[in-house]
Computed example of a mutant assay.
Amino acid sequence: MNSKNPAVRALTLIVFWLVVLIVLFYVLFPFYWALKTSFTGPAQLSAEALQWFPSNPTWQNFRDVFAGQPFGRNLLNSVVVATGTVLLSLLLSALAAYALGKFRFQGKSVLMYIILAVSVFPQIAVLSGLYTMIKTFSLYNTWGGLILSYMIFTLPFTVWTLTAFVREIPTELEEAAYVDGASPLQTLFQVLLPVMTPALVTTGLLAFINAWNEYLFALTFTSDNTAKTVPVAIGNFSGATIYENPFGQIMAASVIVTIPLIVLVLVFQRNIVSGLTAGAVKG
């Protein structure tokens, strides 16, 4: 049996790395192909569509993205809306998570199940009601209207995630703060929030990605570039004629909007790992 162990271990290692390579190829190949297409000129795109590398790389598609439409304004809209959504969601969810995770009151379990149900509710089901509300409050074509609508799916997610984390924070921290005369809000903002930093970063980043990539609400609640975000702008790209498909510009724009997400993940990768593993082991 012992003589077979090295062979079994070698086979296991080979299978493991083969699976890793397949997963990496599956995840990274679409981005590579978008990058390759974005550096292929419009004239060469049809002839070199199936080539692995562009024969004459060019920045033309990237220049056309900003020259042909107000893409810079769309980027600003996405940054403001996604950031505003995350900040407001984290503030409200931190308050809610503290109450749901540390206080006992009647109906708490029912409330948690309602939050979970809302988080998996399809967007299309609330679209007409949200549209009526946004038009009534004159929030159509505004950052505020998009932020309000995006919180439909970011707030339940952040509340549920942070509540699970708050439950694992030792009660001794709160008791020490209460002994020193701190109020519940002071305990939350001065004692618990520093401990919650990894969870806040992880939850905020995931909520930011969801808000950054959201398409349905942005398409419904905007009609011009005043508040139109990049997913809608990319979806509305058109060629010089009705027979031209601007694949190069679409891929270039997709690369541009993906880069900020990659940068955020690289910058906060340690916090993300800590946030994903925090509370996994109780002790």
Score class of each variant (00 low, 15 high):
Asn2Trp: 13
Ser3Gln: 10
Lys4Thr: 14
Pro6Cys: 07
Ala7Pro: 01
Arg9Gly: 00
Ala10Thr: 06
Leu13Glu: 09
Val19Gly: 01
Leu21Gly: 03
Leu24Tyr: 02
Pro30Glu: 02
Phe31Cys: 10
Tyr32Glu: 01
Trp33Phe: 14
Trp33Thr: 06
Ala34Asn: 10
Leu35Glu: 14
Lys36Trp: 00
Ser46Trp: 08
Ala49Lys: 12
Trp52Gln: 01
Phe53Ala: 05
Ser55Lys: 10
Gln60Phe: 09
Asp64Gln: 15
Phe66Thr: 10
Pro70Glu: 11
Phe71Gly: 08
Phe71Arg: 15
Gly72Gln: 12
Gly72Phe: 12
Leu76Asn: 02
Val86Asp: 12
Ser89Tyr: 07
Leu91Thr: 14
Ala96Glu: 07
Ala97Met: 12
Phe103Tyr: 15
Phe103Arg: 14
Phe105His: 05
Lys108Met: 11
Leu111Phe: 07
Tyr113Gly: 08
Tyr113Ile: 15
Ile114Met: 11
Ile115Gly: 01
Ser119Gly: 06
Val120Leu: 01
Phe121Cys: 13
Pro122Glu: 01
Gln123Leu: 12
Gln123His: 05
Ala125Cys: 01
Val126Phe: 02
Leu130Glu: 04
Met133Leu: 13
Met133Cys: 06
Ile134Lys: 08
Ile134Gln: 05
Lys135Leu: 13
Lys135Tyr: 12
Asn141Ala: 03
Asn141Leu: 07
Asn141Ser: 02
Trp143Asp: 09
Trp143Gly: 04
Gly145Ser: 06
Ile152Tyr: 02
Phe153Cys: 05
Leu155Arg: 07
Pro156Trp: 10
Pro156Gln: 15
Phe157Cys: 01
Phe157Arg: 01
Glu168His: 11
Pro170Leu: 10
Pro170Gln: 09
Glu172Lys: 13
Tyr178Thr: 13
Val179Ala: 12
Asp180Lys: 13
Asp180Arg: 15
Ala182Val: 00
Ala182Cys: 13
Ala182Asp: 11
Phe189Ser: 13
Gln190Lys: 15
Ala199Trp: 02
Thr203Ala: 10
Thr203Pro: 04
Leu205Ile: 14
Ala207Leu: 01
Trp212Glu: 00
Trp212Gln: 00
Glu214Ala: 01
Thr220Tyr: 07
Thr222Trp: 04
Ser223Gly: 13
Asp224Phe: 03
Ala227Leu: 07
Ala227Ile: 02
Thr229Met: 15
Ala233Asn: 09
Asn236Arg: 02
Asn236Val: 06
Phe237Trp: 05
Ser238Val: 11
Gly239Phe: 08
Tyr243Lys: 14
Met251Pro: 00
Val255Tyr: 06
Ile256Pro: 03
Ile259Trp: 01
Leu264Ala: 11
Val265Thr: 06
Arg270Phe: 05
Asn271Leu: 13
Val273Glu: 09
Gly275Trp: 08
Ala280Ser: 14
